[in-house]
């Protein structure tokens, strides 16, 4: 029993138990459990890539990537360009991805260069670099030369809207791709497959020569150097890959949500992703694809189901508060662990 607890880990056990209770309550309250599962599946796929973006950063020894907004902003600009060109459907989505990735490559590279100069403070620098970028981009959104009326304020016509609806462009293109229903549970096959595809890519990458070098550089820079690994380069690569995944992640997120959210929306984007990967069993220095998948599944299922259950049981929405406590508590726990 104790070995089981050790293997699964206390946080996962607690959250798992909590989930079971919530599901039981949902059943008792005669809530539409199947629908809840469907929407949990969507939220897992929707957030999964952003969580996956933590892996290269942790692996390369940069810690949790609180600088995720960098990738998110790149992805958003990618989507805006796609919208400005009035592209729709899969073409629109992949064009947005393409632009986002192209932008995130140099952004991530520069971010990596910066992180190489602030060793030991990567997480703090990442957080505030992300915050200031988001705030700085707010000015850009106001002044950016986009013309498509779908995106700019109807009245006044100056600056981009806070939320831009994209459902008629490429909203839901992945969700609805090959969507099927099993026993009343809707499965967003395209979305989950896309997430799975990226998981496999990241997984395979970890076994390549570069992937192994990156892991060594992250776990023990001195060892890696003595084994002929260019540690600085690996760290830059880690930052870049993480930023690229962030850009892809926000596009996936937005197409599920049906909106592109601008201004201060990306500000806290990193925290749920960080919390999810930690909840999945990662630490600030070790993370696997399994951690990411398990984490996002637990975390998003919890958030999906806690809202209606608490609403029906106690009459208030406790899910936002639960999200705050669990996600930030998880990060705090990881930061104060000795091993980390």
């Amino acid at each position: 029993m104790r070995r089981l607890v050790e293997r699964v880990g206390v946080p996962r056990l607690l959250v798992g138990l909590f989930l079971l209770i919530l599901f039981a309550l949902a059943g008792l309250q005669r809530l539409p459990v199947k629908m809840l599962i469907s929407s949990a599946l969507v939220r897992i796929g929707m957030n999964g890539v952003l969580v996956l973006a933590m892996l290269p950063s942790i692996r390369a020894g940069l810690g949790l990537n609180f600088g995720l907004p960098l990738g998110v902003i790149s992805g958003i600009v990618g989507m805006l360009v796609s919208l400005e060109l009035r592209l729709s459907g899969l073409a629109g989505f992949f064009f947005a991805l393409l632009v986002g990735v192209l932008l995130s490559l140099p952004a991530g590279y520069v971010y990596g260069l910066l992180l190489n100069r602030v060793k030991g403070e990567e997480m703090m620098v990442g957080t505030y670099m992300g915050f200031s970028l988001v705030a700085g981009m707010c000015m850009f959104w106001l002044l950016a030369p986009f013309k498509n009326p779908e995106m700019i304020w109807v009245v006044g016509g100056k600056g981009l809207r806070v939320t831009i609806p994209i459902s008629h462009r490429f909203g839901g293109v992945l969700d609805n791709l090959g969507k099927f229903s099993i026993g009343g549970v809707e499965v967003p096959a395209g979305l989950l497959l896309f997430f799975a595809f990226l998981c496999v890519l990241v997984y395979l990458f970890s076994f390549t020569r570069t992937g192994m070098a990156m892991k060594a550089a992250g776990m023990n820079p001195a060892f890696a150097r003595a084994s002929g690994v260019n540690v600085e380069k690996m760290r830059i690569l880690g930052a870049t890959l993480s930023t690229v995944l962030g850009a892809v992640g926000i596009a996936v997120y937005a197409q599920s949500l049906g909106f592109v959210q601008l201004y201060l929306a990306p500000l806290m984007m990193a925290f749920p992703a960080v919390a999810a990967v930690l909840l999945g069993g990662a630490s600030t220095s070790r993370a696997t694809v399994f951690n990411a998948v398990a984490g996002v599944t637990l975390f998003q299922t919890l958030l999906t189901i806690s809202l209606p259950v608490t609403q029906s049981v106690i009459g208030g929405d406790i899910s936002e508060v639960a999200k705050l406590i669990i996600s930030n508590g998880m990060i705090l726990y990881a930061l104060t662990r000795k091993e980390a």
Binding site: M212, A213, M219, F223, A226
Partner: peptide
């Protein structure tokens, strides 16, 4: 600190340098 990746498997420790 320099000789080993303490939390990695023996075989990966052996192979990593020659691989790189």
């Amino acid at each position: 600190n320099i000789g080993l990746l303490l939390d990695e498997a023996l075989e990966d420790n052996l192979a990593l340098t020659a691989m790189q």
